[in-house]
Amino acid sequence: MQLRRFKDIIAIKNDTGVVLNDTITAFHASNLEVAEIDQETFDKMTEISVFTGEIPKDKIDLESSAFNALAEWNSELNPDAKSGKMEFGIRSITLNVNQICNLKCAYCAAGGDGTYGTPTTQISVEKTLPQLKYFLSSVKPGQTFAISFVGGEPLLHPKAIKAINAYVITESSKYQIKPKFKIVTNGTLIKDETLEILRSMNVDLTISFDGTKEANDIARPSKDGSSTTEKILIGLAQLQKNRGQISSINFSAITSTTNTNVFENYIYLKSLNPDSIEFVFANDEKDPAVQQKHIEGLNKILAHAWTAGGEKELRKIKSVDHYFYMLDNQQKTENFCGAGKNYLMVDAKNKLYSCVWDANLKEESVGSNEQLDHEKLSKLSKSLIELNNCNTCWARFLCGGGCMHINRSHNGDKHKKSILFCERTRSLILQVLMYYKLARAANP
């Protein structure tokens, strides 16, 4: 794999893979344009590593038509590339339905047991509804308002989810808002009344499911010692027989110290026929060897998916679908997440945070109930690309500046980048760019 850069253009030549041919894929970072370039042009660019976001020195050659073509492309402005600037306005919230769980996952970032350090049973629906009414009242007609139900384990309290879901649908219709619901669950409680309640809602369902039975049961053990995977499979079979109103069933798989066979996990999870699978690297994992396996596994997955079913199969990997969509619509991302701008986390006590991982960190609270601390939020008003010093990185408008929680976890400072995060993000984007070029060059 050879990676080169000239100002705001990078190019990648794949000389090792069988699936990706050895043509050269180029990407204009601020125009979000993808192209194929010839070897002569590639030779006018400077070699860089995937670890850097800095701009290298130019190889100036004004006599060369290839160099001049490159310089001209670099200076072009693409009128179709849309800004990703985000004005303040809460459009998306994550709700901790509770802060208790029936599992104790090895890498759990919610205090190790789903409690965030403060075990809390069901959130008060009575307090939550006026809080949601307050947020809905400032959403404009026609806009989307998204709620993700998480925990703890949200399906320990399905009736609370249903009550909130029904209320938001009714309120949204008053304001002509489009509500969107998601539940992130460990998938072990999908039976009986919970199954019926799930089927009655138009939700995107994400099951945290790390892979093969062996891998998943080690990474995600249950507190009572029973097999997590067996319980998921029972619930999944019921859902696949009849999913009711559920709009999608997705898996989210975590790569962690005990679980690095990413490709084997993909083959197993794919056999269960979900609508999408996402492969996420454990937030707090700091071992470069684990990351290397994650990157290599993901590359193998993409090659397998592309060979098996082209773009359609490739886009069942959720992050690939996301990048394809952003490239197709030439929509820049200037914020990796909406923290402090359009997103809030509501914990099981109705306290508010700008990040899902801040729950229970008192100093990070940005309000409670219907009160918002605008002074604290204003510290996040600039784009994350700017706040995290990503202005020269070629991946900035697809990545959006990275994750402040991971930065803090790795470096003690939410604006100091995690090198591991940057490496795996750039590596995946490079792969996606090569497949995107293949997909769009084949169907111009």
Binding site: A26, E33, V34, A35, E36, I37, D38, E40, T41, S65, A66, A69, L70, W73, S276, K318, D321, H322, F324, Y325, M326, L327, D328, N329, Q330, Y436, K437, R440, A441, N443, P444
Partner: peptide, 13 residues
């Protein structure tokens, strides 16, 4: 001839 841009398909998660 050095650079051939691909065309996006205008019409995610």
């Amino acid at each position: 001839t050095h650079i051939k841009k691909v065309k996006p398909h205008k019409s995610g998660n």
